[in-house]
């Protein structure tokens, strides 16, 4: 990062400075800041808030109907006694998902985005005013069902978990590379349907994910039948322990990939 003005010169854009040979502040202002600078600033603030309250925050992303809420219901059944869980639900309309979560005895705040196709850090920040983080260990943010837009917005979460249901086709990571590149874990959901569908190959889906240079853990499971849910529960508990260790060491964690985020970080 340039020390002069706090801009964001990275390996990817350094040539702009080198070739032009200028980094001056006259009629032309060299800015080099992320277009989502404001969002990212609020996201960092949210993350500090989570860390201060020792909360592990997971952003769940997928297309609509891939089973995010069902996964949360099962997760609450399995871990609700051990951890205090909270959920922020993002949908264009209705409180339906928050109602399903509350029926499991867990606090849920519904964000209705109206026409917006994604959650952003400001919306999450507002929702946090309705949630007592002192009473939460693990916070799930169920993003708007959409495989495109949510990937661009940091919310302050520690991990991105992307769901891919067996009814969607195993080539989704190749079709939506931005979304799947951002995944810290990929869950292939509705595995109980694998047999009847016959054309979804979890290995192929994993290969498409690796083609995005993403080493994220892949778990094939079913919230309905309970198959391999233990893998997810174990993953979650490990991440919770790591989060507590990080907080004890005064550190935090950003999701594996945030557009520009890694580059900006590395350049410091």
């Amino acid at each position: 990062m340039c020390d002069t003005c706090g801009c964001s010169i990275t390996e990817g854009n350094r040539h702009l400075i080198d070739e032009g040979g200028k980094h001056e502040h006259s009629g032309a202002v060299e800015v080099l800041s992320n277009l989502l600078h404001e969002n990212n600033h609020t996201a960092a603030h949210n993350r500090e808030h989570f860390d201060r309250h020792h909360v592990l925050t997971i952003n769940l992303m997928s297309s609509p109907g891939s089973g995010k809420t069902a996964l949360l219901e099962t997760t609450i059944e399995q871990l609700g006694e051990k951890y205090r869980i909270g959920v922020i639900e993002g949908d264009l309309e209705t409180e339906n998902d928050a109602a399903r979560i509350r029926a499991k005895g867990v606090p849920a705040v519904q964000i209705m985005t109206g026409t917006a196709c994604h959650l952003d850090a400001h919306l999450v920040h507002s929702a946090l005013h309705d949630m007592n983080l002192d009473e939460i260990d693990i916070l799930f943010i169920e993003n708007v069902g959409n495989l495109v837009c949510p990937a661009s917005f940091d919310l302050g979460q520690h991990y991105n978990v992307t769901l891919l249901s067996t009814t969607e086709g195993d080539d989704k990571p190749a079709k939506y590379p931005v979304m799947f590149r951002a995944a810290d874990a990929m869950l292939i959901t509705k595995s109980d349907l694998l047999e009847v569908l016959g054309d979804f190959d979890p290995q192929k889906a994993t290969q498409y994910l690796r083609n995005l240079a993403n080493p994220a853990e892949v778990m094939t499971l079913s919230a309905r039948s309970g198959e391999h849910i233990d893998l997810w529960i174990e993953w979650l508990q490990k991440r919770f322990q790591e989060q507590q260790q990080r907080i004890a060491g005064g550190e935090t964690r950003r999701p594996a990939i945030q557009a520009d985020g890694i580059a900006l970080h590395a350049a410091r």
Binding site: G12, V29, V31, S33, H37, D260
Partner: peptide, 16 residues
Amino acid sequence: TELVSGDELLLERVEL
């Protein structure tokens, strides 16, 4: 692999 470039979302320069 790691990405060297390709995920930029940058405001590079403004002329007034």
